[in-house]
């Protein structure tokens, strides 16, 4: 570390000190800006990290062929899968699993159903977001079919059976014996608004409520 004060001439000393200060401020401001950026960079970093480690609990999607390939190597091992359902406060739906818990053979394609009911007099678009706990298990939990793969439209008072076909990878670590598959249904506000606008265009003589009621679905 230089000691600028060692310069004998006071005015020179002030000059060198000012230059040194400017240099230092510039560097420290760069660090500040970089750290601000780092805060935002944590977002993609986190997602990549979670995809690798499964910590976010996101489930994977596989094709039927891939599922069959897993089935071939499967041995006799059973795990408990529990099913959980949540609805965001903004979405006026009822949503529940038909079965709360199942014994599932590892490496075998299994199917279960959820029930969703639109309790309002309007058609609404919702999107389910899945999550598997423990997070580590999510790497070994794959689905061939799920209502969460796309947005779901429920007409006024409509109820729908929604299937999930999943397979637990035989590579699942042996200390995991229970998995929980949880869904949360969220309102897709923009898509719902679009749907209603669409109805208006096709039924200009009807009011919005009638339009939703008579809508026959996509």
């Amino acid at each position: 570390m230089s000691t600028p004060a060692s310069d004998p001439n006071p005015s020179d000393r002030a000059d060198t000190q000012q230059a040194a200060n400017r240099r230092l401020i510039r560097r420290l401001l760069v660090v500040t800006v970089l750290m601000f950026g780092f805060g935002f960079a944590l977002w993609p970093l986190y997602n990549v990290f979670c995809a690798i480690t499964g910590l976010g609990g996101r489930t994977g999607q596989v094709t039927n062929e891939e599922a069959n390939a897993q089935a071939l190597v499967g041995d006799e091992r059973w795990v408990t899968v529990t099913f959980d359902a949540n609805v965001d406060v903004k979405l006026p739906w009822r949503f529940q699993p038909y079965e709360k818990t199942m014994q599932v053979k590892v490496g075998e394609l299994t199917e279960t159903h959820y029930l969703a009911v639109n309790t309002t007099d309007q058609s609404i678009v919702g999107q389910a977001v899945p999550s598997v706990a423990p997070g580590e298990a999510s790497l070994y939990f794959n689905k061939t079919e799920c209502f969460c793969f796309s947005e779901q439209v429920l007409e006024a008072q409509q109820s729908r059976d929604m299937p999930v076909r999943f397979i637990v990878d035989p590579e699942l670590p042996h200390d995991i014996n229970t998995l929980t598959l949880s869904y949360t249904f969220y309102l897709q506000g923009d898509a719902t608004a679009e749907l209603h606008q669409h109805d208006h265009e096709h039924h200009p003589h009807q009011n919005q409520d009638d339009a939703s009621a008579s809508h026959t679905g996509p």
Binding site: V31, T32, M35, F36, G37, G39, F40, L42
Partner: peptide, 11 residues
Amino acid sequence: LIAVMPVLAGA
């Protein structure tokens, strides 16, 4: 402070 206050600002 310089290392973490900007991260809080980002958050």
